[in-house]
Design a protein around this nucleic acid. Structure first.
Lengths: 169, 169
DNA sequence: GTGAGATACTTGAGGGAGCAATCAGACTCG
DNA sequence: CGAGTCTGATTGCTCCCTCAAGTATCTCAC
């Protein structure tokens, strides 16, 4: 420290805009909740949160199958992330591959009976855990508010892809 | 499951409690925002979001130093996570170690001048990015609401450690 | 002062996921 | 048809972070 004398806290970080507060709140909330649920899920069923989300989406899709691309979009993972995640689920026989007659490029991920069984077991405890954590802290109205607010954030990916082109999209 | 005939979407996942909605909203919001900011920060300054947070906390602490434990608590990382993160920052000479006269177990992490310089450069673009993303989507009142709601979540860590003991804490 | 227990930190092993590059199949247009 | 482009998926490389152990230190009771 070359100029330690006036190194008082206030000088360096005075504004701290409200947007930042919200952002670090989001970070902390996610970190805390995520770690907790991940541990619980992993301990009781050997699943990560994303595994669980993916199984949920598959289970509630027509025929229990989804293209990998669509899956990626739903859980907000990269294509490669999905591939690796599904690798794991396939190894555990919770999902299987299925090919598409109409388009040879696509591989469906399809939930197996075993996957459904595990999901419904996991759902019980996990969903209850989630519900408990949130219900403990928020009223139904607050939950709605929170959900409504959070839903506005993920619209970002578009802005990411075409920074210059306005009308192009 | 074994009775696939009636496998219509609604049958399998009817309730979908409000708590769950909020939770996946949080997951998605975090995933989207995090990836975006991480990429920006990494591209422009070679920092991850956590690197940035840590530098922020150090910069605004007395003497620009903090115990690793306290740092961990602030950014909600594991002790080992902090160690590795600081490894990286030390390698880049953005922080350095300092020992504590009173307690030989603790190692302070102290931000270097170089760290402060990089931080203030990064702060400009990163904070602006955050502000833009949030300001674009939320009114000042909504921001406050959101912040207030999110702040209630991370109180969990305690409940994690002492599940049975109520009064003990 | 010695031993039990808490606390601060580090390390080894392993898993999750992102980016960039690559490949294969599909689509478009001359 | 054949070249060029897009799109879905996979792989190599790399990073971040967690858990489980391990080490060093401090604290306190006896």
């Amino acid at each position: 420290m070359s100029t330690p004398a006036t190194a008082d806290t206030g000088t360096t970080a005075p504004p701290r805009p409200a947007e930042l507060e919200a952002w670090v709140g989001l970070l902390r909330a996610h970190a805390a909740a995520t770690r907790r649920f991940n541990r619980e899920l992993m301990a009781s069923h050997g699943l990560t949160i994303n595994d669980f989300e993916v199984l949920m989406h598959l289970a509630s899709a027509d025929d229990g199958r989804l293209r990998r691309v669509d899956l990626a979009e739903r859980v907000l993972l990269t294509a490669s992330g999905i591939t690796r995640l599904l690798d794991g689920l396939e190894r555990s026989k919770l999902v299987c591959k299925a090919s598409c007659a109409a388009d040879a490029r696509v591989t469906y991920a399809e939930i197996t009976p075993r996957g459904r069984a595990l999901l419904s077991a996991a759902r019980e405890s996990h969903v209850e855990g989630v519900r408990a954590l949130f219900a403990e802290r928020f009223s139904p109205e607050e939950l709605q508010e929170l959900t409504g607010l959070l839903e506005r954030l993920p619209l970002a990916p578009q802005a990411d892809v075409c920074p210059g082109a306005d009308a192009a999209c």
